[in-house]
Simulated assay, not measured.
Amino acid sequence: MTYIVKTNQLTKVYEGREVVAGVNMHVKQGEVYGFLGPNGAGKTTVLKMITNLIKPTSGDIEIFGEKLTNTSYEVLKRMGSIVEYPIFYEKLTAKENLYLHCEYMGHYDKKSIDQALDLVKLHNIDDKKVKDFSLGMKQRLGIARAITTKPELLILDEPINGLDPIGIKELRELFRMLCKEFGITLLVSSHILAEMEQMADTIGVIRNGKLIKEVSMKSIVMEQTDYMEVTVQDIKKAAYIVENHIGIKNFKIMSEQTIRIYEMTATQQEISKALIMNDVEIESINKKNSSLEEYFLNLIEGEETHA
């Protein structure tokens, strides 16, 4: 297995508080790695250490099989990144900003500037100064800058912030294309679960500075199972009927009115009939499928998912 990024017990302490604690991350070559966690979980701090913007308190980082040091200039040339909000020369145009970026990166294929702007769908902006760009346009320009030098590894911190639904869809398709057609490995942080579900090959879930799970999306999909969600007036009586009359053991009371049945040995009609025959009033009964959102929330809450 080839890992483009690998961290070993990566830790960062600020003012006596561990904001990142013993993170062991493994990003495979040629994949989209979704780095998931609520705001303040430590995502940006980890990405800043990987991009050499800040130094770890302890632990180490390997990129392209080399340990990251203060003098890892060649390694950093092979990376593109947006960490936090992208900053530009506001009085210059998009092309002028990208030209300067290529100059200090030592990248002299100027055709790549037009290609990058085309990929992120920034058109007809030749004379427009960046100060007049919308937040979404600046986010697109940041991604264009990150991919102009044809990096092997692309690190993006919350890249879809400020974009409308159409823009989010376009960038999602762009990221998949960069991965599949250009062979770029992407490490993308986000708190937007639905996007990661559609885009990532692997997810890493971080909570309170600790990486609590690394798992492939394929295995999550394989683990997901159908379940029945029943909303009733009398939850205790419903649970009794489900267990003792229908014979189902694998269920969970979700709230004062909702019960989830994970054991699909009885049909929806059979469950409804048994409850009604025993005077349990049903408000709704629906067959559902567990999602990444549930999986993620169960991890964040320290619970294991049934699915």
Rank of each mutant, 00 (worst) to 15 (best):
R17H: 09
D157T: 10
E303L: 12
I276Q: 15
G167Y: 08
E304L: 13
K236S: 14
M277F: 14
S112W: 11
Q224T: 06
V242C: 10
E270G: 04
H191N: 15
T149M: 06
I155Y: 09
M222K: 15
L187V: 13
I4W: 05
S134P: 06
L154V: 10
S290T: 09
L135A: 08
R145P: 03
N52M: 01
I192A: 10
T148P: 06
I168A: 12
R176P: 00
I160C: 08
P86N: 02
P56W: 01
G136V: 04
M196G: 10
V280C: 15
Y99T: 13
D114Q: 15
K121I: 08
K138R: 13
G65K: 03
V32T: 10
G59S: 05
K236I: 14
R260C: 02
F175R: 00
T44I: 09
F35I: 13
T258S: 00
F133L: 05
T258D: 00
N24I: 03
V83I: 15
G34E: 11
R140P: 07
Y89I: 06
K28S: 14
N286A: 11
K150L: 12
G162F: 08
I143C: 03
V215N: 10
L76M: 15
L186Q: 11
E103S: 07
Q29L: 07
A238D: 04
L154N: 00
L53D: 01
I285T: 10
L68V: 02
G162A: 08
I206T: 09
T202S: 04
P38H: 10
G80P: 01
T267F: 02
M105I: 09
V120C: 01
F175L: 15
L211V: 04
V19L: 01
V23W: 07
I300Q: 12
D109N: 14
R140W: 12
E294V: 14
T231I: 09
K131V: 15
V232G: 08
K55T: 15
I147A: 02
S291I: 05
G302D: 07
A200K: 12
L76Q: 09
P38V: 08
M1Y: 05
Q233I: 03
N278V: 14
D157E: 09
L187E: 11
T44Q: 06
I241C: 03
I212P: 01
S72D: 04
I282G: 02
E293F: 14
D132P: 07
N278Y: 09
Y108T: 12
T149D: 06
Q139M: 10
A144M: 04
L100Y: 11
V280D: 03
R207Y: 14
P38R: 07
K6I: 01
K6D: 03
T305A: 12
Q198N: 15
I235G: 02
P56R: 03
L117H: 05
Y73N: 12
Y99D: 11
C179L: 13
K131Q: 13
G204W: 00
K6C: 05
I276L: 15
F296R: 05
I160D: 04
Y227L: 01
M25E: 02
E15M: 06
M177G: 06
L275N: 03
N286S: 12
N298E: 15
K55R: 15
T305P: 13
I259H: 02
K111T: 15
I248R: 01
E281W: 06
I271L: 09
V215G: 12
N208C: 04
T267P: 04
M1K: 08
